[in-house]
Simulated scan of single mutants.
Amino acid sequence: MQEESGFDVGSRLRQLRLANGLSQRELAKRAGVTNSTISLIEQNSVSPSVSSLKKILDALPVSISTFFAGDEPGGAQMFYRAEELTEIGDGHLSFRLVAARRPERQLSIIHERYPPGADTGEEMLEHDGEEGGVIVSGEIEITVNGESRVLGAGDGYYFESRLPHRFRNLGKEECVIVSANTPPGFSDGGHEVHHA
């Protein structure tokens, strides 16, 4: 999951694990993943899915935005070029977070890309807060609390995030969504969850 910006997921995970005084085995146990999963991620041999990385970071606990922001201090930047958005996706799903390094951010705004066949997973997601978004292009099936809808360009959604939810692109075109959630799921250490 080393992005074009050169972000080293493996080294960053190892740095945080050691800073928390955890062995690979202990972190794996806390996160509910195998020892080999932690080892392979730290060696950059595999790219973890967003949900897998989230489970591991929750066990530290460290937010996804803190993970990708590294130790760089945030600032009061107000405008962001496309290349300045922080990629927090898994290499298949793309989630580009606006203002990831902004301290005490109260909102997560995410530019999402779901290629055909993309799915946030059979395990429904649930977390505190609210989320909403607008489909920019393509179509996405969203299931919330057992109710499913296929939404297309211009359609929107808004729901309480504690309701079980899942996003799937069943179409043949990429789906692009601009979404927001609060509290900022990708910034509260140990509590960040969006739909991935």
Results as ranks from 00 to 15, higher is better:
Glu174Val: 12
Glu112Ser: 14
Arg25Tyr: 10
Thr120Glu: 00
Glu126Asp: 01
Asn181Tyr: 01
Gln106Glu: 14
Phe67Lys: 04
Pro115Asn: 05
Arg102Asn: 06
Ser49Pro: 03
Ile177Met: 06
Ala28Gln: 11
His194Asp: 05
Ser23Thr: 15
His92Lys: 13
Glu130Asn: 10
Arg101Ala: 15
Met124Trp: 01
Ile177Ala: 04
Ile142Glu: 02
Arg25Ile: 08
Leu27His: 12
Glu112His: 03
Asn145Leu: 08
Thr143Glu: 14
Gly152His: 03
Glu192Thr: 10
Pro183Lys: 03
Met1Arg: 09
Asn169Gly: 08
Arg168Phe: 03
Gly156Ala: 14
Arg149Lys: 15
Glu83Phe: 04
Arg12Trp: 05
Ile177Lys: 03
Gln2Phe: 00
Ser45Gln: 15
Lys55Gly: 04
Gln106Asp: 12
Ala118Val: 05
Asn169Thr: 10
Pro164Leu: 09
Ser187Phe: 13
Val150Ala: 02
Asn181His: 07
Ala19Gln: 12
Met78Pro: 01
Glu3Val: 03
Arg81Lys: 12
Gly117Ile: 06
Ser36Val: 12
Ala59Met: 05
Asn20Phe: 11
Asp155Pro: 08
Asp119Thr: 12
Leu27Gly: 11
Ser23Ile: 02
Glu130Leu: 06
Asp58Ser: 09
Met1Cys: 06
Pro48Val: 03
Arg17Asp: 02
Gln43Leu: 12
Glu173Asn: 12
Gly32Asp: 13
Gly138Cys: 06
Ser108Asp: 15
Ser11Phe: 00
Phe7Tyr: 03
Ala76Gly: 02
Phe167Lys: 08
Arg17Met: 04
Phe95Lys: 11
Arg30Leu: 12
Val98His: 14
Leu85Val: 03
Lys29Met: 10
Glu104Leu: 14
Glu4Leu: 07
Glu26Tyr: 00
Arg162Val: 07
Arg105Lys: 15
Leu163Gly: 05
Val178Glu: 01
Ile110Leu: 14
Pro183Ile: 06
Leu40Thr: 06
His194Ala: 13
Gly70Trp: 03
Val9Asp: 06
Ser51Pro: 08
Asn20Gly: 01
Lys54Tyr: 06
Leu60Lys: 11
Leu57Lys: 04
Ser137Gly: 09
Ser36Gly: 13
Arg101Asp: 13
His165Glu: 08
Ser47Leu: 01
Tyr158His: 15
Val50Phe: 00
Arg96Asp: 13
